[in-house]
């Protein structure tokens, strides 16, 4: 118990980094994943194929291998991404480790985000768009009034699953020099060898809280958007 109480600042710092990684790569993966999905369902078959290839490649590679590419292989060909350390906001700056971890998490998660968006668009019955066209709605009206509202509603559950997986996947950054929650457990476990179970329990509770917040947020959205669905 005292392992957590005496080193509570380490615990908080660890989860601060976990949340930071989650939020940064969560937003980046939503943006990149949406671009991939747009290419995937768009009319240009070259882009659709390239996006499909990206998804297949990154979904079947373990996240740890992507981390190895970014953190160990890329520096060999001159990409360390350490230039981000030059960027300063006040007296706060991003470390190269943090940026590389976000990059790896984003590249990996985007593939899943793309699939979630695509399944959302596929969930809209084709008759909806056909009826809208038959009524004379323009492409823009069709998208904003008919297709997107329905697709967005269908995309919330799979997207939430992907983001929850991302929150848990931030733990992989522990193996690449980031003192986030899992690395903190290893550190505290080495320091207080007799209290591993308590330390594990407290770190696990931290992750569960993050997961619950995301899940409850998604339920709230789902309930709000349920409206006239079914």
């Amino acid at each position: 118990m005292e392992a957590i109480t005496t080193d509570f600042d380490l615990y908080l710092k660890g989860f601060g980094l976990t949340v930071g990684l989650f939020v940064a790569s969560g937003i980046a993966s939503l943006v990149f994943g949406a671009l991939l999905a747009a290419a995937r369902v768009g009319p240009i078959s070259v882009l659709a194929k390239a996006s499909a290839a990206y998804v297949t490649l990154f979904r079947n590679t373990p996240l740890l291998m992507i981390f190895i590419f970014i953190a160990i292989a890329m520096p060999r060909i001159g990409f360390t991404f350490n230039f981000v350390e030059e960027i300063r906001v006040g007296d706060w700056n991003i470390s190269g480790f943090f940026f590389r971890a976000c990059l790896a998490l984003t590249l990996y998660t985007s593939a899943f985000v793309c699939e979630a968006f695509r399944s959302g668009i596929n969930a809209v019955p084709i008759g909806q768009a056909e009826a809208a066209r038959a009524l004379g709605l323009t492409f823009g009206q069709n998208m904003t009034n008919i297709v997107m509202p329905q697709a967005l509603r269908a995309v919330v559950p799979p997207l939430t699953s992907v983001q929850i997986a991302l929150a848990k996947n931030t733990s992989v950054a522990a193996a690449f020099g980031i003192a986030e929650a899992t690395a903190t457990m290893r550190l505290l476990g080495n320091r207080y060898g007799d209290q591993t179970v308590e330390i594990f329990f407290f770190i696990a509770v931290g992750y569960i809280i993050i997961v619950e917040i995301v899940a409850l947020g998604s339920y709230a959205l789902e309930r709000r958007w349920k409206a006239a669905a079914r």
Binding site: K168, N169, T170, S171, V172, A174, A175, A181, T182, M185, R186, G189, N190, G193, T196, V197, F200, I203, A204, Y207, I208, V211, E212
Partner: peptide, 18 residues
């Protein structure tokens, strides 16, 4: 619910440490 919400790496590290 517990084992689905906790990262696998955390579980692994725990068993390894303990």
């Amino acid at each position: 619910e517990f084992f689905r919400a906790v990262p696998v790496l955390l579980l692994m590290t725990f068993f390894w440490l303990a």
